[in-house]
Simulated scan of single mutants.
Amino acid sequence: MDQNAKLNEREELILRAVVQCYITTAEPVGSRVIVKRFGLDFSPATVRNVMADLEEAGYLQQLHTSSGRVPTDRGYRYYVDYLMGVQELTLAERARIEREMSARLNDADEIMRQTSQLLALVSHQTGMVQAPDEDTARVQHIEVMPVSPSRAAVMVADSYGRVHTTILQWDDGPKPDEFVTLNRFLNEHLRGVACDQMIARMHGIVRMVLDENRILAERALRMLQLLPSSRPAPLYLEGAAQLFEQPEFRDIDRAREVFGVLEERERLAALLRANVAQAGTSGASVWIGSESQEPGLREISLVASPYRVGDQTAGVIGILGPRRMPYQRLTAVVDYTATMLSRFLTRLAGV
């Protein structure tokens, strides 16, 4: 069999049957099981021959001489790309997702946390949500308050309902009675500006104003420059314990390897973004095992989708699980959840 050729109808039928059986049972699949379960017109001997051809081409593997076959990463990839079809969520499943997400509509962080919990609950795997980056958040209100003669508290409320508070060491800060004027000036010029563009916006104002507001603008700029640089958007992760209930991770060394990856949140967030960027699609995409070429992730698959705020991609959500995942259903879950999250966050941000 040509390893680069598309499979014929019979080969696709057998590969689909093996993948679906293995996803359900987590046990190597034999020819008799396929014939009986799917009511095929082929004899077990014919199915065995096709399975042998699929193994030779790299779509299946035999873990032990006397056992049935299981899919390889290449077999899963062919199944996802050509065989699994599209599964629509039921009205009840859609209503549940919308109901769970709508319970936290006033706070983006709570929506993120709720969404990761929901993905874990619905999938029985690990749910992940990367929070929106700062370049999609807008300043709703900014307040600076004196804490001591040389320290000030800066609170920035963004368009997602989040409040970021920082205590600054500000030796040349304003006098107590000047904070009201400073706050008025900051809100007049920064409300609606992207959170990661506050300094650039104030630089422009400093260059523009020539009256008494120049001193005020320079003071505001110094204060903004003292704020910490933006940090990577946090990753919310729920349901990790469910991952280790899967039979693939009964092996201690394999489980330890995967657990180490789950502890590296920034690495996982980078994998989410890379998966979606490589797929180049606005819907759900699937990354399987060794395709990542990342240590510790050979036994893991990821179903991920970007979500949007207005017309701009804001972050990524995903479900992490063993390669033996029900891709057909989880792709639909991730797709619909990303759509709902986009709708709620766009509404919250007022875009």
Rank of each mutant, 00 (worst) to 15 (best):
L119R: 01
V122E: 12
V122Q: 11
S123T: 10
S123R: 03
T126L: 05
A131I: 04
P132C: 02
D133Q: 15
D133L: 10
D135W: 15
A137H: 14
Q140L: 11
H141Q: 12
I142H: 10
V144P: 04
M145G: 04
M145Q: 15
M145L: 15
S150R: 15
S150P: 04
S150Q: 14
A153F: 06
V156L: 12
V163R: 13
T165F: 06
T165Y: 08
I167H: 10
Q169R: 13
Q169K: 11
D172E: 10
P174Y: 08
K175Y: 08
E178C: 07
E178A: 14
L182W: 03
N183F: 01
L186T: 02
E188F: 11
L190Q: 07
I199M: 01
A200Y: 07
A200W: 07
R201Q: 13
M202Q: 06
R207W: 03
V209E: 06
D211M: 05
E212N: 12
A217I: 05
R219W: 00
L221P: 00
Q225R: 00
L226P: 02
P228R: 05
P228Q: 08
S229F: 10
A233V: 01
G239P: 00
A241E: 14
Q242S: 03
E245N: 07
F249P: 01
R250L: 09
I252K: 13
